[in-house]
Nucleic acid binder design. Structure first.
Lengths: 181, 181
DNA sequence: CAGTCATGATACATTAATGTCTCATTTGAG
DNA sequence: CTCAAATGAGACATTAATGTATCATGACTG
């Protein structure tokens, strides 16, 4: 139902800001293949766009993760499946990390919720015995995010296909958190 | 020999831009505890400051890494020792990743050189048998950088001391790249 | 086909950031 | 202490980015 033009703007904005956080609205408009005035018709201003991006980023990640893990056999398996889906959305994740948006209550709330859900899922992974005892759950979560970013970076640099990259990420993550060297 | 004020500016700038890539020069000046005019006396403009930051970031990382690994027993050991040192400099690493500076030849050249050195060192680590055969060196390098960032993030969020964080990073990295789950 | 609607292009106004300058004050070296 | 250099504060000019308004055009709908 969401406007087609708005979707195009948001997608272009993710790509643009991922490459250059200081990009102007004019650059975003050009990247989206539209006029600057049109961008303003859809989003009141920069702050407005940023908020919409943050909310969409969170929602996209939620949706993709849920879909990918729908028929996982375990939490550990869900993490593996989710990783695949997340790699394609690393620009969203990067945006959320890069742009300071704590001052927008709605964004802060959703961000916090998502973070808690991921942490809870990681606790379940721990119960399944996939994480060494000395590794804090917070570390496992951060490492998970870092691996999705790293996989995306490999793909972006043309050093691997998405499939190869997420396989490497999973290998590194699972054996890295299991911890038996 | 480098000016004390300039050092203060650069350090404040790293912290400021790490937290908010779109920060203004006024914000940097305030963070450095100096007037905006003084900042302009030391750096012609934004571009000038960015270039100086990039060069300092590269140099700081080189210096810290060299110092930390001076008496390593092996390349693998050097990576472990280097990790400790790098965690404290993650703001520099973040800056280099965040700010697009390919268009400044001198920066691009130094950045490339450092990257090649790190890759070469990682190749040696591989020869020492610390990296699984199916893992590309490029992946190992990126993961190394990701782990320093992750460790820094843990410290920043107050979830670990620098020592704990770099220990976790090394555990994850070494067993993750060894790859035997 | 007629009418409406979103758009691109453009001009324009406003605001924020940057860059320059001056001057009184402070700092530090000799 | 004295002098020179550096600084902070502020005024000011310039530029870049943002936001608003208008208008002609092309697309889609009824």
């Amino acid at each position: 139902m969401t406007d087609k033009t708005e979707t195009a703007i948001l997608n272009a904005a993710f790509a643009t800001f991922a490459a250059k956080p200081t990009a102007t609205l004019a650059e975003v408009a050009t990247a989206a293949g539209i006029g600057r005035a049109t961008l303003h018709r859809h989003f009141k201003g920069r702050e407005d766009l940023m908020t919409a991006l943050a909310l969409k980023a969170i929602k996209d990640i939620d949706t993709a993760f849920d879909k990918a893990t729908r028929d996982a056999e375990s939490y550990t398996d869900a993490m593996r499946l989710g990783l695949d889906a997340m790699v394609a959305l690393a620009d969203r994740q990067t945006f959320l990390e890069t742009e300071p948006l704590e001052h927008v209550p709605e964004v802060a709330k959703e961000y916090e919720r998502q973070r808690e859900e991921l942490t809870a899922a990681m606790e379940e992974v721990r119960k399944e015995g996939s994480i060494a005892a000395n590794i804090p759950t917070a570390w496992a979560v951060k490492t998970y995010e870092a691996m999705t970013y790293t996989a995306w970076s490999m793909v972006k640099d043309g050093e691997a296909t998405p499939k190869q990259a997420s396989a490497l990420a999973w290998q590194t993550l699972s054996s890295g958190l299991a911890g038996d060297t």
